[in-house]
Design a protein around this nucleic acid. Structure first.
Length: 654
RNA sequence: GCGCCCAUAGCUCAGCUGGAUAGAGUACCUGGCUUCGAACCAGGUGGUCGGAGGUUCGAAUCCUUCUGGGCGCACCA
């Protein structure tokens, strides 16, 4: 029983009558102007389409609103209707209607949220880390947002396929193979292969960085010198009284100075990498002076099907998967498929052939390219050396998802730096013939450091994902022990795990996914204010009440108690509970889980006020107590369900 | 140079395809635990929504422009 859609349904015929030739899109956009009010004094919902119609029809908006009010039957639904301001229609829902909706939500195991009538197959591409590299805080966004979107789509009845498109075929394997061939500690490998492979990756990384820095150092020094000369030249210019030129000069000086400063920083970094290097390691590095070329050669050999490298890859991959699986287990995220880049390798040549033969791809500078309208650079699908690229694999992936999985919609939960790549990929796919399937880049912002620059995991300054999870759990555990000193240790740890992990996920999900955000331990792991903890705490308080009165949310569903409103906050809580389904709809319009977070936080806030003002145990009558118990039960179920959709667990006690 | 994104309270962020007096959290100040869990509640301080124009009954939201950030831009993924 949806409140909002009920109101819309009532207004729809009147609007259609008013606009005789309107199409459904026009009517829908007018109905979208039915929304909850921001302030209780305007009632519960407001209808704002009269103002928009005023101009179109050449009638005063207030007259239109009055006409609508007269035509639309609302007396059973609304206790009060009001015409206000330039033509707002304010509706106050009838308490009986609210109670009817509540009863149906209470008896429904889906909390009154209807399933879609036409389920679609939605493929969600999420997480997609490069295996064999340590996962860091940047990977959490795609994983957590993608998981939440998958849960929500499933909940309303779509068929969801989640696919973790791993980077499992790239240069990092050339690095590991090179490391294995040159530096492996066989005993350590046998004892703990995951750890040893990880060490080898890092070891080769350091040696490569050492050489890269050594190479870049003179270049950078030279560039800095040139910039200094350019600065001196600009400073020497004499523009007399010409204000425009003086202003430009000042700006140029400023900009050059900034460039020089950042160049100096880079030089210091390179110098530190070379000179600050452990002497023993430096000796090894010098012995492997062609490491960069060798790594590429090992990668190329793997791709060409060299037996030795392919065998090593087959041997290493399971360990790499096992390594990242440990993180996914802790996050509680599961995938329907984990089809990495390697899965598509043997299809790439024929895809390039197909695109070439139908004229979509053409040769340019030796590379096979798809040129697209509106883009300067083409999408390259085969390098001049014959190797395939990321876009080639992505095309194969689309083909697979449409033909094997019958995808109606594909969501790519990937950060916004790849915006252009996806625009090109989607455009090319449509030209290729995949124009029925909906393709969306669900992009998200970058994780920034404290300095306002993109968060980088520098050696020695790494916030690895695993460390972040550890920190989250231990901080939450400390509070859990403080709050529950007499609880047995295993339960304290369970609380620490659930609360810490919830805080971490919620910190990511509660922000608008499109904006960049600053990484901060204190923010991500906060347990007060607008956090998952607040929601879990509200839920635990409900359980406190229910257990005190010897009942629980499940058994409350079996009794049909009348709901009564004695305090304003009871009605507010009821209204908020009924808006759960509207919220789910909102989330899916633009794939924004933060709207669900906002909703749940509002719900928990109303409940906290209810808790403060309305005692359940000491209610003045049995009827009132039963009514309040029902509100509590539905609140708990809604919180638990909502948190679950976000991928966050709830506990009866925290 | 071309393109995409962003700028809201001291700090971190919401603000739904334009809606009524711009909201949270945090920090700071005040009050509330013999009363269902104080990881809480009530109240207060705090804003030229980066600047300037425009569109209209109405703009944080749409358009133009400027300033200041971030990110992409042919053979990395």
């Amino acid at each position: 029983m949806k409140l909002l859609s009920e109101i819309k349904a009532r207004f729809k015929p009147a609007l259609e009558a008013l606009l005789e030739n309107a199409d459904t899109a026009q009517i829908d956009s007018l109905l979208a102007m039915v929304r909850p009010t921001q302030d209780d004094k305007f009632g519960d919902y407001q209808v704002n389409c009269a103002m928009a119609l005023g101009k179109k029809l050449g009638t005063a908006p207030r007259d239109i609103a009055a006409g609508l009010l007269q035509q639309v039957k609302l007396d059973d639904l609304c206790a009060r209707t009001e015409l206000a301001g330039p033509g707002f229609i304010n509706l106050t829902i009838n308490d009986n209607w609210i109670k009817k909706c509540l009863s149906s939500a209470i008896s429904d195991d889906r909390l009154g949220v209807e399933q879609v009538t036409e389920p679609r197959t939605v493929v969600i591409d999420l997480s997609s880390p490069n295996v064999a590299k340590p996962m860091h805080v940047g990977h959490i966004r795609s994983t957590v947002i993608g998981d939440a979107l998958a849960n929500i789509h499933r909940f309303i009845g779509h068929k969801v396929i989640t696919d973790n498109h791993l980077g499992d075929w790239g240069t990092q394997f050339g690095m590991i193979i090179y490391g294995y061939k040159n530096f492996v500690d066989q005993a350590a490998y046998e004892k703990n292969p995951v750890q040893e492979l990880s060490r080898l990756y890092k070891y080769v990384r350091v040696i490569m960085d050492f050489h890269a820095a050594g190479r870049k150092l003179p270049e950078a020094t030279e560039l800095k010198q040139k910039q200094i000369e350019a600065l001196e030249k600009v400073q020497a210019q004499d523009h007399g009284d010409n204000k425009g030129k003086l202003k430009q000069q000042k700006k140029d000086i400023q900009r050059l100075k900034e460039k020089i400063a950042s160049q100096e920083e880079a030089i210091a970094d390179f110098r530190n990498t070379v000179e600050g290097c452990d002497p023993e390691l430096a000796t090894v590095a010098l012995e492997h002076s062609s490491v960069e070329r060798e790594v590429l050669a090992e990668t190329a050999k793997l791709h060409e099907g060299d037996k030795e490298n392919r065998d090593l890859w087959d041997k290493f991959l399971p360990f790499c998967l096992q390594d990242i699986q440990r993180i996914y287990d802790r996050l509680g995220v599961k995938f329907d498929f984990i089809l990495g880049e390697s899965y598509y390798q043997d299809q790439l040549a024929s895809i390039v052939d197909e695109l070439t033969s139908n004229g979509l791809a053409t040769e340019s500078d030796g590379a096979m390219c798809v040129f697209l309208k509106g883009f300067e650079a083409p999408m390259i699908i085969r390098k001049k050396d014959g190797a395939f690229l990321y876009p080639t694999t992505d095309l194969a992936t689309i083909k697979h998802r449409v033909e094997e999985w019958q995808a109606d919609s594909m969501l790519y939960v990937v950060d916004h730096r790849q915006h252009d790549h996806f625009e090109k990929l989607f455009a090319a796919s449509r030209l290729w013939g995949y124009n029925e399937v909906e393709m969306t880049h669900v992009s998200f912002g970058t994780v920034m450091g404290d300095d306002g620059k993109p968060f980088k995991t520098r050696a020695g300054d790494t916030v690895g994902l695993e460390g972040l999870l550890d920190e989250a759990e231990s901080r939450a555990l400390a509070v859990a022990i403080e709050q529950n000193p007499n609880l047995e240790e295993s339960r304290q740890h369970e609380i620490g795990r659930v609360v810490g992990l919830g805080a971490l996920k919620y910190a990511d999900l509660s922000q608008n996914r499109t904006s960049d955000y600053k990484f901060s331990y204190d923010k991500m792991l906060a347990l007060k204010g607008n956090t998952a903890t607040y929601l879990q705490y509200a839920n635990a308080r409900v359980h406190g009440i229910l257990s005190k009165l010897d009942t629980d949310a499940a058994s409350l569903r079996n009794t049909a108690d009348d709901i009564v409103f004695t305090e304003t906050v009871e009605r507010q809580l009821a209204m908020q509970l009924l808006r759960f389904d509207e919220t789910i709809d909102e989330v899916l319009v633009e794939y924004k889980p933060n709207l669900l977070c906002n909703y749940l936080f509002d719900l928990a806030q109303v409940f906290a006020r209810f808790f403060d003002q309305c005692s359940v145990r000491d209610a003045s009558s049995v009827e009132l107590q039963r009514s309040r118990l029902q509100l509590c039960g539905l609140t708990s179920r809604t919180l638990t369900c909502g948190l679950g959709l976000l991928g966050i667990e709830s506990l009866e006690r925290i």
